[in-house]
Design a protein around this nucleic acid. Sequence first.
DNA 1: AGAGTTGTTGCGAGTCTCGTAATAATTGGT
DNA 2: ACCAATTATTACGAGACTCGCAACAACTCT
Lengths: 404, 404
Amino acid sequence: MQTVADIHSFNTFAVARAIHAAGVCTRRELVEATGLSFSTVATICGKLIANQVLVEVGRAAPTVGRPTTKLALNPSHGVFLGVDIAETYVHVETLDLALDTVSHTRRETQPSVNSPEEVLLEVNAAIAEEQGRHPGHRLLGVGVAAPGQVDQAGGLSLFAPNWGWHDVPLIDMLAPSVSAPLYLDNPLKSLVLAEIWANPERCSQDFAVVNLGTGVGAAFAIEGKVHRGSTNSAGEWGHTVLFGDGRACRCGSRGCVEAYVGAPGIIQTLREADPGSHLLRGDDQTATINALRAAAAAKNDPTALEVIALTGHYLGMALASIVNFLNPSIIVVTGWVARQLGPVLIDQAQPDINSHSLAVPLGAVRIEQPGANGNAVCRGVAAQAFEGYLKSLPDTAAEVAKRP
Amino acid sequence: MQTVADIHSFNTFAVARAIHAAGVCTRRELVEATGLSFSTVATICGKLIANQVLVEVGRAAPTVGRPTTKLALNPSHGVFLGVDIAETYVHVETLDLALDTVSHTRRETQPSVNSPEEVLLEVNAAIAEEQGRHPGHRLLGVGVAAPGQVDQAGGLSLFAPNWGWHDVPLIDMLAPSVSAPLYLDNPLKSLVLAEIWANPERCSQDFAVVNLGTGVGAAFAIEGKVHRGSTNSAGEWGHTVLFGDGRACRCGSRGCVEAYVGAPGIIQTLREADPGSHLLRGDDQTATINALRAAAAAKNDPTALEVIALTGHYLGMALASIVNFLNPSIIVVTGWVARQLGPVLIDQAQPDINSHSLAVPLGAVRIEQPGANGNAVCRGVAAQAFEGYLKSLPDTAAEVAKRP
DNA sequence: AGAGTTGTTGCGAGTCTCGTAATAATTGGT
DNA sequence: ACCAATTATTACGAGACTCGCAACAACTCT
């Protein structure tokens, strides 16, 4: 159930997102962007200014009349941390209020590092390093993305298959060394929030973010809200069936999308096309995918072209299933495989997307790749921390004064 | 964006649904059921009573204290019509305020009847017949379900593939002969609303309704709201890929779920298993499916058992894809094929659901078949008309008096 | 300097939820 | 028969929130 306070937070988020997207803007522009009344925008801006989240930056003198004051997020008010805990690395970014990355720390982790204590040692070290870099700045919130199944409210990693974690109290283990509110989410779901903050018109749209990497998954926004499902595990597009009774998948099942468009799946397609291909780099997935990209770009290796064509075919059908099932307005294709092969794969996939999608949803959808600036997972969880911070703000100047 | 009035309608719906589910209940029970405060429930009940939607029916005398007045929907306040326009029939039901079917009219339509004018002639005749049956009752609203792509706000049938309709102004064509607000929806999406009214705890859940018939489709509720997608065409599960490059589907694509678990797909499986099977009934899908059901029940026809096993296998994988993708708490399997073969198919599908679903979403989902009372599509669209009527109610007794 | 123009702030109306006090209706004891 | 005691319902007011409108502020142009 919604309460009236939820509406207010939502409106506050809408205003903050619009300012974030515009960089610098006027109240009137915010009215346009949010669809709220001028009064409401003014009230919300007043609250944000009283809390120093927003500042008035100069004024634009028009030909006539009182000049408009321009508003911007106050970058020096404080910072957020975005923590991306992945299987092979820990990446921590410091972001300012404009969600621009100020600095980052990355620690590659050895495959042997997989107990919660060992991983969190790395995380804490990276967080400490980042915090040490900005001693003068207030830390307003910390967003943490952890792979696998996550319990946001309880701050638990319910299940992380690659590490064999069960019910690890991540947030409780991090809390002692962090003096700011902590927010936990799954990395893919945090990308949805990153998309919304990057393109605030999406805050009322239906769209999907698709990850192509070693694993394959998706996350969706429905009317601008992340769809989580009944146990926060929605989005396992990678384990929907693409070829019934097809390839064995690492999940134990057969025929999953992941077994065809995940990096190991692509490499299997390559191996099936030419077991002795010179593009194969043994166990090194990254190197093989890179070699494939180079060969496809050079257009001199028929095997590479065949693998790209096949994988595009697979991807096209799998994306069409999303189009038909969900009827999104955008599908954002991301992940390290997409960064390497994305453009060429989507090119190859397009005919299959067209032929496998029904006309109406096909006409409504656009396939996109994100602009590659910084770590979007960190930005997404930081955005979540930002929203949490906005929600906690007091309304009136009087109450602001009372605060520490 | 949500407004505060939306919250009020939503709460009104919640109260009405709770009363509908309970039949007769006290205000206190409504507080329990809805989670609202007593004051709010009392306010809403007051509004509904002033509008004669709700009536006080007797009182329960406890051992001590003032007796509780029992509330119930006022069945004699008026009626709704639910109109289910399908390819082979038009089914119109009169429902009272408790959404119980009072009477119904069904007209089978000839395959030759397919122009909008001809179909609507049948519809209008059926509506007139139903209206004539209850001359003393106020008609409060009419819900209409039409197959294919529908524009709710505009009251258009955007696209109905079986009839070749494009942009038919259904509601405008019906309006002259109906003196009550008209509501249009797709039949599958209306089933979601029927489910919510039948089980109001679902008004905050994620669940899917799956239709197995000649065509195959799905609709989902996300946090109790029908998911429509960017062009109201979400739910085309029947045209997601199950066997890449597999059977040709009537949509023009290949390997769709519908080509395997729709009636023609099942019959194709039967024909492939035994081209001369005595279960085949030529063009008569219904008869063939019936024969298959009988043979499977008798367990004396190995071909029938094989077809059931195969179709269960297909259905299991396709349902597992929903489980993984959406993480719903319930999947309701409906449609005429499911009415015939449902229990045995779901039985056969279960191992594949289990093996193809990831553990967490699998643990959260329940596969159900609806209790078969009346036409749920009619009940769903009538519920939509009911909600529309509730939304239109004035707040105060004074305003009620002013009304016609 | 003053009129005209435009931006911002302040105030009040209208809703909505919800807590609490006041009132109503009953039972059981005296 | 009357008075607690008990429970149900209604009435009222507080606190939030959005939004329309009027007042005020700041600037340009004449």
